[in-house]
Simulated assay, not measured.
Amino acid sequence: MSRADDIRAAALELFTSHGYGATTMADIGAAVGIRGPSLYKHVASKQDLLVQIMTGTMQNLLALHRAAIDTTNDPTERLRRATEAHVRYHARHRLEAFVGNREIRSLEEPHRSDVLAIRAQYEAGFRDLINTGIAAGRFTVTSARMASYAILDLGMGVAVWFREDGELTEDVVAWDYGEFALRIVGAVT
């Protein structure tokens, strides 16, 4: 891992445990063994770290979504696979999910608008899948937008409770949440 990666990882841990506002650059520097002023040789600002974390998270989610739906043209399977990718990401990246949901208010403009635009694009991807399924007579839900929000909320919730050493495996959770998503849209089999 590079020094920049170490710094980003330390910032992520601190933003999660203390919050963005309560974390100082000195805290981040101490976590990686760099004195506060020297940290600026590696990163522009605390805001820059938050932007990197939040933008990176959303770009990763978009890429995983695209990869999942590119594997089939079947509306039901596309929604299942997109949901499974969403759930797996949140199971594996709990800290990013936590910071992404809690610290959007801490982003300064234009970064807040940029991250919100990527989030809207991500949600629209789910909504498009649902609308395609409705048009094909495969889904019976009345509001694609509300269904997409519900599916996204399900996946984000996994970040709160899922543990690798817990009772349920990631595969079981991803499969079951895929089933939940199909029930939300009233999938016709």
Rank of each mutant, 00 (worst) to 15 (best):
T76P: 08
F139K: 02
E103N: 09
E109T: 07
S113W: 08
N101V: 15
F139Y: 06
E108T: 12
F126A: 00
L107Q: 07
L107Y: 08
T169R: 05
S106W: 09
R119K: 11
G133Y: 02
R138C: 08
R102E: 13
R102T: 09
D165T: 02
G178Q: 00
Y122M: 06
T132Q: 13
V160R: 04
E108Q: 12
E167F: 10
G178H: 00
R78S: 06
A159S: 12
T132V: 11
I134C: 04
R105V: 14
R80T: 07
I134Q: 06
T132E: 13
V160Y: 10
S113T: 14
G157W: 01
Y177C: 05
V115A: 05
D114F: 15
R94I: 06
Q121H: 09
V173F: 04
A85I: 01
V115C: 10
A85S: 06
F98G: 06
G178D: 00
T169K: 03
F98R: 10
E109N: 13
G166K: 03
H86S: 03
V160N: 07
V158Q: 01
G178R: 00
Y177E: 01
F180M: 08
R94D: 15
R81L: 09
D153Q: 07
W175P: 12
L107P: 10
G133M: 00
V172K: 10
Y149N: 15
A174R: 00
A147S: 08
E170N: 07
E123I: 11
A136P: 08
A124C: 15
D128N: 15
A147P: 12
G133Q: 03
F98S: 08
F126W: 07
G157L: 01
T72K: 05
F180A: 07
L152N: 03
A174M: 04
S148N: 05
A174E: 02
I151F: 02
G166I: 00
W161C: 08
V172Q: 13
V158G: 01
Y122P: 13
E170W: 04
L154S: 04
V160D: 10
R78F: 04
G178P: 13
V172N: 04
R102N: 12
G137R: 03
R80G: 06
V87F: 02
I104W: 06
D165A: 05
T140L: 09
V160W: 07
R119Q: 15
G155L: 00
M156G: 14
R105F: 14
G125Q: 02
V160L: 12
Y177F: 13
A91E: 00
M156K: 13
G133R: 00
R105T: 14
R92F: 09
A144D: 06
A136E: 13
F126Q: 01
G166Q: 02
I104P: 11
V172L: 10
Y149A: 11
H90D: 06
P110M: 02
H86V: 02
L95Y: 13
T132R: 11
L107V: 09
G166L: 02
S113H: 11
D176G: 10
H93W: 09
R119P: 14
D153C: 11
D74K: 03
G125S: 11
S148Q: 00
V141F: 03
I134A: 01
I118Y: 11
T132N: 13
T76S: 14
A159Y: 00
G133C: 02
T142C: 09
S148F: 03
T83P: 15
N131A: 13
G125V: 02
R78D: 05
